[in-house]
């Protein structure tokens, strides 16, 4: 009985893992399908020696191009962190 339960547990966990892999593959392929997008972003600065109100900006993503951030206000855009490629998430 104990061996049966262990085998059942193993089969279930393998199934869950396989399902997770499948979902991830689907998600990855959907991300790969994104050519470009535009998003409204809020930029909040949390640095001791800088006091700045929350800023709004528009972020433009285009495949294989650097991310662009545009704003009518003055904004500080970190050189590292924003320039992500969607394929780099996983």
């Amino acid at each position: 009985m104990r061996i049966f339960l262990m085998c059942l547990g193993l089969l279930l966990s393998m199934n869950v893992h396989a399902q997770a892999e499948l979902s991830l593959d689907k998600f990855r392929s959907r991300l790969d399908g994104i050519e470009a997008f535009k998003a409204n972003v809020k930029l909040e600065t949390d640095i001791d020696f800088i006091q700045m109100p929350v800023k709004t900006a528009v972020m433009y993503y285009e495949r294989n191009q650097p991310v662009k951030v545009e704003s009518e206000d003055f904004v500080l855009v970190p050189k590292r962190g924003v320039d992500l490629l969607l394929s780099e998430i996983f």
Binding site: V69, F74, L76, V77, K79, R80
Partner: peptide, 12 residues
């Protein structure tokens, strides 16, 4: 110093 870590968007 700040310019080494940030891009500036806008005119100061």
């Amino acid at each position: 110093n700040l310019k080494q870590s940030f891009h500036f968007q806008g005119e100061l």
